[in-house]
């Protein structure tokens, strides 16, 4: 069963709907002892990364999350929370990945936010099992996670190359929204729920 970290950062109805559609049971995590009830953990998030981190800290769950050994998936801002620092609000994040979350540079001649379907270059990873290379996923964001070959498991090109997905041990993050990315997104959520 998937546990969703409930720290009040944005709407999670779309995520829970997607899980229901593919038959994955889930519950909400409000306290540290509740992590034990779940095999897989999702950290959702939309909106402002700095504000989201503040809310997450207020729940007192950060240390427990960092110590988790079961599969954890951060989605969008939930992924950015896994990094060391975000330029959004100049805020310290959980520092699970030694990576920076940066603001897109207008000088790259791109529109911000990066909004819409973009194809991703996949590395061989169980999270993307059954998903074809260059499949398109739905992105909506103004801040991105810098590319780092050690942690990158999928790359996207928008003005520059950066990470669409990252992994470090049991921690995974995706910048796009699998719950809004059609059949491929549902497959990814299914793959995550099957990770050992």
């Amino acid at each position: 069963m998937v546990g969703i970290v409930n720290y009040g950062a944005g709407n999670i109805f779309s995520l829970t709907s997607a899980l229901s559609r593919i038959g994955i049971t889930y519950g909400m995590i409000n306290a540290a002892e509740e992590f034990d009830q779940y095999s897989h953990i999702i950290i959702p998030g939309v909106g402002h990364a700095g504000a989201a981190m503040e809310k997450l800290q207020q729940t007192g769950l950060v240390d427990t999350i960092k110590a988790l050994k079961k599969p954890v998936l951060g989605i969008c801002v939930g992924m950015q929370l896994l990094t060391a620092h975000s330029e959004e609000g100049d805020a310290r994040m959980m520092d699970i990945f030694p990576l920076q979350t940066k603001l897109f540079d207008k000088a790259l001649n791109i529109k911000i936010p990066h909004m819409g379907w973009n194809n991703i270059a996949l590395k061989n990873n169980s999270l993307f099992e059954g998903v074809e290379n260059q499949t398109q996923f739905y992105f909506v964001h103004s801040y991105f996670i810098e590319y780092n070959a050690i942690f990158d498991i999928a790359t996207v090109d928008y003005g520059l190359q950066y990470s669409a997905a990252i992994q470090k041990d049991n921690f995974y993050g995706v910048q796009f929204h699998p719950e809004k990315s059609g059949a491929a997104g549902e497959r990814l959520l299914m793959n995550f729920s099957n990770l050992k």
Partner: peptide
């Protein structure tokens, strides 16, 4: 709609 739809 949100329950059924997998696009934005």
């Amino acid at each position: 709609v949100a329950r059924q739809l997998n696009i934005p």
